[in-house]
Amino acid sequence: MAADKVDPIHQFHINPLIEIPVGGYDLSFTNSSLFMVATVVVASAFLYLSTSSRGLIPSRMQSISEMSYEFIANMLRDSAGTAGMKFFPLVFSLFMFVLVANLLGMFPYFFTITSHIIVTFALAMLVIGTVIVYGFWKHGLGFLKLFVPHGIPGALVPLVVLIEVISFLSRPISLSVRLFANMLAGHITLKVFAGFVASLSTMGALGVAGSILPLAMAVALTGLEFLVAFLQAYVFAVLTCMYLNDAIHPGH
């Protein structure tokens, strides 16, 4: 029991709720799947219900939906131009999904789906895949100009192309690891400090007094984690916009 309480890794365990073995794969509906569904339901319900009155003068909730809409729309327009607005639903969905998933993860006993590398990597590959497919579809081989910036001396071209290719290939990794590692590390740290409070409190009056420090730390970290939850969703959306800009205007 005590082990469960203090084990900071326990929260990341995936438990199947409904077993669905298909072929050699385990496609079970797990707690992770449950929270994906929860994320989608919460985000959709909020966006849908808050805007259902279509008020000319927005209510508070409608204001939040409108602000997120304009926030992402401006972000995309600033970095990718008006041509980038065709990707607005994608960027907005990614932002809302990551944001709500991160925020839901802040509830005690809730599962944080973005703390699993496979989820963030899949989202990152969705972005990079969109960039590559749209880039080649729109510009054909001209998309490869992305790797050859303008105005560099001919002798440097191979080196620069190599660097550009490496930087392009590392994008999905950095995009996914950034989100994953932030959520994972944050939740582990939070759990460790909360665990200190629990284990110190079992040690009598001195321990209870001593547990104030990690408790204060845990409270501060909770605040920080809310910031990180928003910030990482924002960073994910901003980088998505910048990568999409490369697909739309590959010529730098």
Binding site: S32, P89, S93
Partner: peptide
């Protein structure tokens, strides 16, 4: 659980999108 996560992510995110 990678296949499960990918499947359910595709389903939920796809519907959300």
């Amino acid at each position: 659980y990678f296949p499960s996560q990918l499947l359910w992510l595709a389903i939920t995110f796809g519907l959300f999108y």
